[in-house]
Amino acid sequence: MNMALLIDGSLVVLILAVAIWTIAVRDSFAAVVGYAIYGLMLALAWVRLAAIDAALTEAAIGGGLTGVLLIRAAVRLRPTESVVAGEMPGRFVKALAAVLAGTVSAALAVVVLSLPVPAPTLAPQVAGHIASTGLGNAVTAVLLAFRAIDTLLEAVVLIFALIAVWTLTPDNFWGGRPGPKYDTDPNGMLAYLARLLPPVGIVVAVYVLWVGADLPGGKFQAGTLLAAMWLLAIMAGLTEAPPIRRRWLRGVLVAGTVVFLAIGFAGVPLAGAFLAYPEGFAKPLIIAIEAASMLSIAFTLALLVLGPPERSEHS
């Protein structure tokens, strides 16, 4: 057994072990922490599968932002733990559930083992057409050129999710600020980090965005970094979450999608189809879309983590 197999085998065992622990452990907070760890190990698995863009995204969003979201929730829901734990089903149900879930897993395993060899792939087609996009990163080319509609709709998904979250606002707080007022020691460690890290984070984010055209990276990863920096500043009390009533905020949220749509529709007269790029201009247009989207994504992700408004504008 060579080194690579050993590494992969150990990683798989670790991932499954953490996953089982996450499901089985009694305390919800512990399970959430377990999930954050699981997310990071999964990012390693993605690296081993040679999908660096996915690894970056999983680490940032799957492990990072989802972890923050779930930890905040687990802490707030602590008082309900024991009450709800009483609803745990009995042994028979657990056994039946295990059998059903196990059968599904087994069926999937059979399919995995019987996938065709050689595997059907679209890599040759991507390689054949990537030159016209001017990009070097095949994943970015797929996201913003070949399957741009999915990325466009994805931005719409984020907006819909935010609208759905905002619908949950109590009526008397409508238009107010999401999240609590954070009362942090202005001379403490958190405030210090929040002053130190964001400038670095912003530079790294812009770099990740720029380099995403030719190397792993792109607007999702960059946007998540920006969102994290902003959340850090908010949680350290350095800045306040804006009231959701503000026009500028709503404008920023939709800006990425609007730019995407505008360039998409411009493609009809200029390049013959919606979401097509005119000859030679593909790369600058793609970078423009990515830049605008990065800002929108950053704001949307941060607001999704913060949740619906919990206090009025002027508190």
Binding site: D8, V12, I15, L16, A19, I20, T22, I23, S28, V32, A45, R48, L49, L70, A73, A74, L77, T80, E81, V84, A85, G86, E87, M88, P89, V93, K94, A97, A98, L100, A101, G102, V104, S105, A106, L108, A109, V112, L113, L115
Partner: peptide
């Protein structure tokens, strides 16, 4: 990794059925 993915799906489905806490 494929088998790992299959196992994770099964684990998650089990957890969905059995764990009472929505979180």
């Amino acid at each position: 990794y494929g088998l790992c993915g299959a196992a994770l799906v099964g684990l998650g489905l089990y957890g969905l059925i059995v764990n009472p806490q929505p979180l």
